[in-house]
Amino acid sequence: MSFWRYLLTMALVTYLIRAVPFVAFRRKVTNRYVKSFLYYIPYTVLAAMTFPAIFYVTASPVPAVLGTLVALFLAYRGRGLVTVSLSACGAALAANLILYFYK
């Protein structure tokens, strides 16, 4: 399959899902169930993408689990996107380097 077909598909679907409602709907969604379904979508998508895939980021699960715990803790304490993301990275990287050099 050519890269261009993939690129066009991704770009077009992503653009249309953003632009069409922004252009067409200028009033609120009224159906309670449709609204509720859309309300949960961001969180269910992100959670399903994260777990359990996050545990397989590093070759050994230990750095990945450590990074996950750091991210969960800092996010729970209300830290911002960049802080949470960088700290998780730092923790996973440190653990990965330690495992690499001391194994």
Binding site: T50, A59, P63, A64, V84, A88, C89, L93, A95
Partner: peptide, 30 residues
Amino acid sequence: PPVISEAMGIAIYGMFIAIVVPKVKEERKT
């Protein structure tokens, strides 16, 4: 080297966690 780049792969998931956790902390249904 993979020992560095694979650990960096956790960044995107960290961002997802940072978006989801504050919401589920405040809302039991979510």
